[in-house]
Amino acid sequence: MTAAPTATLNNNMVNGRPSGKYSLDYLDQLESESIHILREVAGQFEKPALLFSGGKDSIVLVHLALRAFRPGKFPFPLVHIDTGHNFPEALRFRDDLAAALGEKLVVRKVEDTIKAKGLTEQKGKLASRNALQTFTLLDTIEEFKFDACIGGARRDEEKARAKERIFSVRDEFGQWDPKLQRPELWNTYNGRIHKGENVRVFPISNWTELDVWNYIRRHNIELPSIYFAHEREVLEYQGQLVATSEFIQLEEGDVVSVKKVRYRTVGDMTCTAAVESSADSLDDIINEIIATKTSERGETRIDDRVSEAAMEDRKKGGYF
């Protein structure tokens, strides 16, 4: 038959294992898996969308899409559900990136859904629109008849996510039913759905926070400035640092100070906490993450602290 070489013959052994030209390291393997998933979306769906938040995970998704589809255009628009509570730096980054790539950007505002549907906003100090964005997302899916929404969620983030499929089928209300998930075997993804249903696709399911940062460093991917250490006025609230902004009601007795901080995740200004840090380069950030004793969501996400099953409940209600 063929004279093609085998891995063991062709590789030089280093420390008892091959390190030759026919082996991929873990980041290259993860990248290839993610590109494969993105191309499956392109091949299987009529109207996919990439949910883009301006956060590092969705920025990595865009980078992966470039590697999956260039020199062609993306077979999907970038879609941002704007809560109105976003960091201005993330919004600017979003607009600049979409313009630089020449890709279509769709923005739908939670503010508009609140007005149009007479929704009631959360009250209180850190009033969050996190729950309301599910309404806007579902409306947007319906408006554009999106049949697949690609998101940057990872299984290491949270234990309900650890159980979700890469192709996660949602009913017409966007609801996730963890007990009725399709078995997902090999690298074969079954994206068949009935009209009205849609699939949430998570191409970087198998990446960890550290993998994402290492990938960003390897490919020198640009990020919004708030990921790097900067001076910011913050409110100390239940042990977390929340940026002061027009969305937060300060009260007497609140401790507000200027600190050197950076963000580990970027969500709404009201539900994302900053961490004190002087890390202003990717190397420093990666060293901090290696040394950290707290999980990404545990340290920075106020929205997960509500209950043990906060994420599971949100997903069952149509959340990403």
């Binding site: 299984r155 234990k159 399911s205």
Partner: peptide, 23 residues
């Protein structure tokens, strides 16, 4: 650590495949 869903924690069982990562 590996029981991710409410029903699993309540009943002390594991319902589905969970993925865990370490390096």
């Amino acid at each position: 650590l590996t029981d991710g869903l409410r029903a699993e924690r309540e009943q002390g069982i594991t319902i589905d495949v969970a993925y865990k990562y370490f390096s």
